[in-house]
Design a protein around this nucleic acid. Structure first.
Lengths: 215, 215
DNA sequence: AGGAGTTTGTGAACGGGAGAACAAAACGAG
DNA sequence: CTCGTTTTGTTCTCCCGTTCACAAACTCCT
């Protein structure tokens, strides 16, 4: 499930606060979800928790971490070291959760040999070698939209089966490859949409009259 | 709907390619969705499109842009000008879609007077003034997790009603305020989860035996 | 030991979104 | 003008996720 990482973070917060045991109600409020949903999610991965008592924070935390897979080390390669790629490479939240950036790749020679967050930027053509040598299974695409599909194809070609895509493009990948998309401008556009519906009940009508013809 | 921006981008791509008219089938394939879903979404905001012909690309593009609200100019303020904040400030996709970064704010005095993407970094306490003077309705939080709730409270306090949160924290906001969350490490964790289930069918069993007691 | 109070785990109802299928409408050919 | 073809708009059904509600189970107090 996609909520497991949220629970894990909530449990980390509780552990940092010194809480040893928590009820589903408490954990659910910290994680911002319904308590029944939380219990069903947790029960779906095993019967941790004690009736009448609750969940042992430390124990449950380990179980969820193991279920997600963050107890092991995941090598990650980032392609496209522009502004966003540099920010991602420097993001501390990756390393602290079991992800290790093993290579930064960029097609632009001007960026090569530059060092970002302690890792040297290398040519994009090093992709296959890095993936093979380091056993990389997860790739991050932070290139412009036009390059995204090519990068994805190359990634898939050398065995990467999980892709996190920040480029504003729809990627076509073979079955068995997971792609998750993060599109910054789409998020803002969704906010603008709701904002307009909140503020714009007086300006433009939302039910326009039928209009025929082309622009 | 959250898919409107995707359709808009697909329409832009078609317009750039010189396409004047497209069927729901074609547009759906470019946007990566089902054609029935696309038609239902579009019909939900008015009866554009001509039976037997399809949709006029330019006309539909304008209609969707107007529906989302990207035909108008949205002033945006970014709080937290670390690695991620700088990348966001430099992101060209915002300006090209009607979003204008009017202020960069950071609580750290060491970052003040620094210029990122042509905009000067100012103290966080300037928030209220900027929001009032520029009529800001959308705020972006790119601070560490511990500061996120405080920033959100201040934003809500001075009239911001849409927040895009990059901090790994659950924000509590009053009703009427929209929050969208982008959590980079959660995205990677979800990929790791699926990756583990793909590769790990031989290593650790996913149905652990019941275990009692604390760690 | 026994009962009262909590809290988990789960069965059942509810709701909404997704996809298939069909009717209405526009265009073109004869 | 009429008929066949194409494509939209919409209805119907199905399925999954969410939520409520309750029984089982555990702790604590007397």
């Amino acid at each position: 499930m996609a909520r497991l990482p949220v629970y894990l973070r909530a449990l980390n917060a509780l552990a940092d606060a010194g809480t040893a045991t928590c009820s589903s109600e408490h954990l659910a409020s910290v994680a911002g979800v319904n308590s029944a949903k939380l219990r069903k999610d947790l029960s779906h991965l095993g019967s941790y928790g004690t009736r009448g008592v609750g969940y042992d924070v430390e124990y449950l935390r380990y179980q969820i971490a193991r279920e997600i897979g963050v107890t092991q080390d995941w090598p990650v390669v980032i392609v496209g070291i522009g502004n966003l790629g540099q920010a991602l490479a420097s993001f501390s939240g990756f390393r602290s959760r079991g992800f290790r950036v093993v290579a930064l790749l960029d097609a632009d020679p001007d960026r090569h040999d530059q060092v970002v967050a302690g890792v040297e930027v290398r040519p994009f053509d090093d992709l296959e070698g890095v993936v093979r040598d380091q056993g990389v299974a997860i790739g991050v695409i932070a290139t412009p939209a036009v390059a995204a599909q090519d990068v994805a194809d190359r990634m898939v070609g050398c065995g990467i089966t999980s892709i996190l895509n920040f480029a504003p493009a729809v990627l076509a990948v073979p079955k068995g490859v997971d792609v998750r998309k993060v599109d910054l401008s789409i998020e803002l556009q969704i906010l603008a949409y709701h904002q307009q519906r909140k503020a714009g009940l007086d300006s433009t009508t939302t039910a326009p009259t039928r209009k025929v013809g082309s622009a």
